[in-house]
Design a protein around this nucleic acid. Structure first.
Lengths: 197, 197
DNA sequence: GTCTATATCCAGATAGAC
DNA sequence: GTCTATCTGGATATAGAC
């Protein structure tokens, strides 16, 4: 029915607006400092009305987590194709630091475990796994297929973004290290794998 | 005066016990979830009595921050001497991951910026700088003196510890990557520096 | 879907008696 | 130094009228 559809659409629009506002407040007050009162005020609602859209505060964090990984997947798909896998990985590493720098609280929710009591639902975590599988595919494209390679790649991404956010927010000090670090990683992984074979 | 000395000693002892309890609670409830009520209960005090020892909750976080870096410095000094700087850096990287794994909330307070509103005092930050200067010295011992080398070294430490805590707490998955990553870091940095000269 | 009203609980912090 | 008492303001969440 048309009226049912319209109502559902309106509901989902509001859910989207609430998440937008939640990200904005998380940037301003800290992710763990997000409060339903402030969030409601930003939406020009009473705090209780938020429960029409989310059953709990945890559910809001969970929706943010899922949305964050969906955005990361979109960011991955937007990466330009590259013949050279090394150049592709360098661009991917830069894009990851940019992704984190653009919204620090998103990096914090997705990759650090700092919100007391929060754990993603199975459904949301599935999106996170898809992002990781995408990375596994890139490495395979560069001839790197063992689990250790993926683990070290993750170290570089996490470390680059973490240092950039914590010690040079708004700058480029670690961002500019992303490409050489990615090259380092590929050389290292190939050498190590060669040693073992 | 003897009685004055004894009182001061008792006071400082209590401060130490409060910090111990604060770390324990931070591990249990999350660093940002630390509450003065819980902390007082652990000390068998009323919450108000804590103000005899610390003027605010922020001051407690600040003392924890300073203590954490003092512990890191002690950990650095405990590293066995090594003729080979590469072996020394490998051991240092492993020790750093162990340091983080042993008390995740300490890693979180010292190296992530996730407690809403917390910023270290100048005095406490000075201790953090000493720890960083120590690392600079190690790299210099391996012939690595440019700022970029130190930045990439920090990426490795932060990334290794962060992944270990977030995705394999209690395990050794990233810890065992520390030594090979450090060894290759040295090789890579020397090669890069050679290219530039 | 949004509201008023309320429940329940907790936070960090201060004043002043003992 | 520790306590009782209190302030002030928040939090998340639920019930039920409109």
């Amino acid at each position: 029915m048309a009226s049912g559809d319209r109502r559902r659409t309106r509901h989902e629009e509001t859910v989207g607006l609430i998440l937008r506002a939640a990200w904005r407040l998380a940037e301003r007050d800290g992710l763990a400092g997000l409060s339903l009162g402030e969030l409601a005020r930003a939406m020009e609602m009473r705090p209780q009305s938020l429960y029409t859209y989310f059953p709990s505060k945890q559910a809001i964090y969970d929706a943010m987590y899922k949305q964050g990984f969906e955005e990361l997947l979109a960011c991955h798909e937007a990466l330009p194709a590259q013949r050279d896998p090394e150049l592709f990985l360098a661009a991917a590493a830069e894009a990851f630091v940019d992704f984190a720098a653009e919204r620090p609280s998103r990096y914090q929710l997705l990759f650090q475990r700092t919100v007391p009591g929060f754990a993603p639902s199975e459904e949301s975590y599935a999106v996170a796994r898809r992002a990781l599988e995408g990375m596994r595919g890139w490495l395979a494209g560069a001839g790197l297929t063992c689990e250790r390679d993926l683990d070290l790649w993750r170290v570089l991404l996490l470390g680059l973004a973490g240092e950039q956010l914590a010690n040079d927010p708004g700058g480029r000090r670690w961002r500019q290290l992303a490409a050489p670090a990615a090259r380092y990683f590929v050389t290292f992984a190939r050498t190590e794998n060669g040693d073992q074979k």
